[in-house]
Write a protein that binds this DNA or RNA. Sequence first.
DNA 1: TGCCCGATTAACT
DNA 2: GTTAATCGGGCAA
Length: 199
Amino acid sequence: MSRLTRDRLHKRLAKAFFRRSVHDVAPDLIGATLLFNGAGGRIVEVEAYHHTDPAAHSYRGATDRNAVMFGPPGYAYVYRSYGIHWCLNFVCEPKGSASAVLIRAIEPTAGLAAMRRRRGTSEERLLCSGPGRVCAALGITSVHNGLALDAPPFELLARTGSVEIVAGPRIGITKAVEKPWRYGLKGSRFLSKPFAAAV
DNA sequence: TGCCCGATTAACT
DNA sequence: GTTAATCGGGCAA
């Protein structure tokens, strides 16, 4: 598909998209397309982190690591997880709110060859199904911390049509585990973990 | 300063 | 199911 055609079909997400409650932005990102240097795909799983949330990095105030979270919305917050992996977040809400959405899983649709090479696997379902895997596949590291999301190498496109969204408890945290702030695309096989069946 | 632990993953048994 | 890899933040001393 040509760039021109794609631009007609998909609206780019501007900074205003992120200048809203993190709890509105997170579900709105499900089904959106995330590209980094042309590689990426459809976002199928995210988690919301609010500054009043004990599980958020920003909960205890600004540090060198989380400084980007305290800046304006529409920028990338990248941090090292467990000393090994990189995790990608989108800063939301008015500046100073220090809230962000963690990108947990993507359905690969573009740049498959580059992502397989960086991940060292050809298993498509495992390419981007986890926050560490997303960054590994897209080639995102700390040098990209603080980059704007509405300019290259980032490209974010709003979803087209409607999607079915499921919510549930977040993964890998020990504080505020009861908050159902994980959102996913219903039935996707690219989720990092399945959502519990609806009650 | 020293120690513990985490928004994880892959390779084990 | 269990565990190693590996490093910055937070807190105690």
